[in-house]
Design a protein around this nucleic acid. Structure first.
Length: 509
RNA sequence: GGCGAAGUAGCUCAGUUGGUUAGAGCAGCGGAAUCAUAAUCCGCGUGUCCGGGGUUCGAAUCCCUGCUUCGCUACCA
């Protein structure tokens, strides 16, 4: 029985274009999914779009289209980008879909019936112009226009009732909130009394949302609606077998939405009597030229720019770069210099060049056929053992979601193949001891093949090309046996997988 | 203001419970080699481990303090 594994990205809000941040989260989730599948796990990878709420309504009005038309346009942009990168998500959920809306309403009704949701009122300063409640201080400062005192009746979720239970849960489950600094942040947040969560908006203020099943004058607060996607997409209240198989999830999120995922969401689940997510992993942000990315600073990297880099060296390289250099624990800086630098050192110099040297030697001395190895010596045994160690290490990193360590590990193994060649010098042996040269080249190629399999989730297109060149009949995306290289088979046509990028071209851009 | 994290080679960072000459990758310099995409391999870092004080036989690692940066959170003018 394969182990099930459910991983999600946040549902991206359709108020904005996809950008480097959303692409990062989604690509990392894809990479984790692919390694898991490679290992034989039964993976479900979910992403999608969050489509209700005020900002969507306003943006649609501004553009003179309906909210639904607006959502269709933006949801398509996300879908197109994910398909541009060939991501392997098993589903793409939109919160406007009826399968989601229906279940959200059932959940609301259930919680209302159980008394988890109650009607209450709030009096405060409300800015009609900005359509939001403001604090006493903001009102005094006079930062907002058209402010009036209003008393609004709304529905509240008894979030405060779960405060102690949540704190206890976090303390007892060290992997629930990762990395650990985020966990501390939430525990700090929970030192103060939690308030109940207002989960409704009166329709006169906001119409674009899911109607409360027990009061048609209101729609659901957008976060309460959006968070539920993680279970509505997974068959909650619609496909119990599916839900039981995959839930609980690993949620991959950015640090900006930590509170919603580590306070709102778990307390909602507690009220529903559903097990909490296995892990909420909050990564950092990409910076650009050392600063927070912003359109006004002019250092914003949009997806068009990234696609231009991809045109130069291949889409896979962006995946690889995301995985290796991404802001998993801390923020990371994105620069095109670094992007091409990593490409050249890891991919062109280490892997690409290694492919060439091995293939050309085999072509020259063994008629382009994979040579038959003799008995392995000490060095050959070491290469094989190191392959196993490398694979195990990568899988251990995967378990901890330490994606950035995976590339480093795989490349270190590639480097060791280069070292092995330097030590054994098959180009000399070919003339003096052809049998030994055959063993060496076989070993080098077997190791290279193994490394390609390990790199596959990071570079799926490039590694597929490699396996085609190798012509060994391997299935990309599966774990392989080091000894599975078939002597006597003719190598396919060789081409440069990772042509070196001339850094001088950077100045011309 | 409170709470928390961080400050280690030019850059990005590792440094487990305090213990021998503080490490890796990249960049740089020198060399070897020439099978290969001027790629590869080898060699090269005496760095006030942010400053100051303390504990200890011994601290990057523990304690106090100061400075700087960042995060969360609260609040005053």
């Amino acid at each position: 029985m394969p182990k099930s594994f459910y991983i999600t990205t946040p549902l991206y809000y359709v108020n904005d274009q996809p950008h480097i941040g959303s692409s990062y989260t989604t690509i990392i989730a894809d990479i984790i999914s692919m390694y898991r599948r490679m290992r034989g796990d039964d993976v479900f990878f979910l992403t999608g779009t969050d489509e209700h709420g005020q900002k969507v309504q306003q943006a649609a009005e501004k553009n003179g289209i309906s909210p639904m038309e607006h959502c269709d346009i933006y949801a398509t942009r996300f879908q197109e980008l994910w398909s541009y990168f060939n991501l392997s998500n098993d589903d793409f959920i939109r919160t406007t879909e009826s399968r989601h809306v229906k279940v959200v309403q059932q959940v609301l009704q259930m919680l209302f019936d159980k008394g988890e949701i109650y009607k209450g009122s709030y009096e405060g300063w409300y800015s009609v112009a900005d359509e939001l409640f403001i604090s006493e201080k903001d009102h005094e400062k006079g930062n907002y226009r058209d402010v009036r005192r209003i008393n609004e009746t709304n529905y509240y979720f008894k979030m405060s009732a779960y405060q102690d239970q949540l704190i206890e849960y976090i303390n007892e489950h060290p992997d629930f909130i990762l990395p650990v600094n985020r966990k501390n942040e939430i525990l700090g947040f929970l030192k103060r009394p939690l308030k109940d969560l207002c989960i409704s908006r009166p329709k006169e203020r906001l119409a674009w949302g899911i109607e409360l099943p027990f009061d048609s004058a209101y729609v659901t607060y957008v976060w309460f609606d959006a968070l539920l996607n993680y279970i509505t997409a997974m068959g909650y209240l619609s496909d119990d077998a599916k839900f039981q198989t995959y839930w609980p999830a690993v949620h991959l999120i950015g640090k900006d939405i930590l509170t919603t995922h580590c306070v709102y969401w778990p307390t909602m689940l507690m009220a529903m009597k559903i097990p909490l997510p296995k892990t909420v992993f909050a990564h950092g942000w990409w910076t650009s030229e050392g600063q927070k990315m912003s359109k006004s600073l002019g250092n914003f990297i949009d997806m068009e720019a990234i696609q231009a880099y991809c045109d130069n060296v291949g889409k896979d390289v962006y995946r690889y770069f995301m995985a290796k250099e991404g802001p998993l624990l801390n923020d990371s800086d994105f620069s095109k210099e670094r992007f091409y630098q990593i490409y050249n050192t890891d991919l062109a110099n280490d892997f690409g060049n290694l492919v060439n040297r091995i293939f050309k030697l085999i072509k020259k001395y063994y008629d382009n056929k994979i040579p038959l190895p003799g008995d392995p010596g000490k060095e050959e045994q070491a290469m094989k053992t190191a392959a196993d160690v490398c694979q195990n290490t990568i899988m251990a990193h995967l378990e901890k979601l330490h994606v950035n360590a995976i590339a480093t590990e795989a490349v270190a193994y590639v480097t060791s193949i280069n070292k092995y060649l330097e030590k054994t010098e098959p180009w000399k042996l070919a003339k003096t001891d052809p049998d030994k040269a055959a063993t060496v080249l076989y070993t080098a190629l077997a190791s290279l093949r193994f490394s390609a399999a390990l790199l596959y989730p990071l570079l799926p297109e490039k590694m597929t090309e490699f396996f085609t060149m190798l012509n060994n009949g391997d299935t990309p995306g599966t774990l392989i046996d080091w000894d599975g290289l078939k002597s006597g088979r003719e190598l396919g046509e060789m081409k440069a997988l990772f042509p070196r990028f001339d850094m001088k071209l950077l100045d011309e851009e």
